[in-house]
Design a protein around this nucleic acid. Structure first.
Lengths: 136, 136
DNA sequence: ATAATTGCAAATGCTTTGCTTGTGA
DNA sequence: TCACAAGCAAAGCATTTGCAATTAT
């Protein structure tokens, strides 16, 4: 009955309230990258007393605990996804808003090389591709 | 007496007011990536009647005309730079906030390949590296 | 002349926060 | 029990906008 996010909360000593459990559940079941409003809509279907402030507080809490990842794509409000096992980047369909995840080791390696060459240790990065579907 | 940005405005049919000339001048002379507040501070030193609303309107106008580029780095307000001749990406020093520009053709090429492989035409992208200086 | 631009202040949209009541460990 | 969390409404912050006065062409 418990999900990955709940397990991580327990492990990290994050107190599990009904609201947090519900938000965790909804996030764990989301295949997309919902924003706070969308999350609030989804949890409200199950418990209509949860306030949007709680959703804001909870995603922030989860993010700080490394349980979820936050993304600020161009021109949108912040969107969230369960923190992935392995890093990936995103391609955003500029027509539909659809988000496709991808991994490219070569780019990752080159990023490290670039940073190093400039005298920096790479701590974090952001790579987003914006494109339109090629019709066949 | 006129700068690159003023020339571009003329070419694009953007009406040149005193305020816009001044903002163009300040942007053209900026080596860094100032935000709107900082731009407002800089123009105010020369003309203290310019309102922040005008700065907002002007950077937006310039951006839509392709004259300046807007960047939303992590955790900061929007920052602007004169639109570069040739594309570059940014490395942000997470300790000082300093921004270093770089170009890497290999990464650019790989981005196109990734998009293509996913069935997309790459229209735009965002690549930001966040790092800390390696002390020697 | 007159359509576009400015300055000001008010409005917006997303997010955070203070405070009182409620609750998980 | 009691420190912490939730709900609500108010505040915050960056940015946008309505409107009357001003200005570039």
């Amino acid at each position: 009955m418990s999900n990955e996010i709940e397990n991580l909360c327990a492990k990290k000593g994050v107190r599990l309230t009904d609201q947090r459990k519900l938000i965790a559940k909804v996030m764990a079941e989301s295949e997309d990258h919902p924003d706070v409003d969308e999350l609030h809509k989804r949890v409200t279907k199950i418990d209509n007393k949860i306030s949007i402030a709680t959703v804001y507080r909870t995603v922030k809490l989860f993010e700080e605990a490394g349980i979820v990842s936050k993304h600020d794509f161009k021109g949108n409000k912040s969107r969230y996804e369960q923190a992935p096992e392995e890093h990936h980047d995103h391609l955003i369909d500029i027509n539909t808003g659809e988000i496709i995840e991808f991994v490219n080791e070569d780019i990752e390696k080159l990023q490290n090389e670039v940073a190093e060459k400039l005298g920096y240790k790479l701590v974090d990065h952001r790579l987003e591709l914006y494109g339109s579907k090629i019709k066949k």
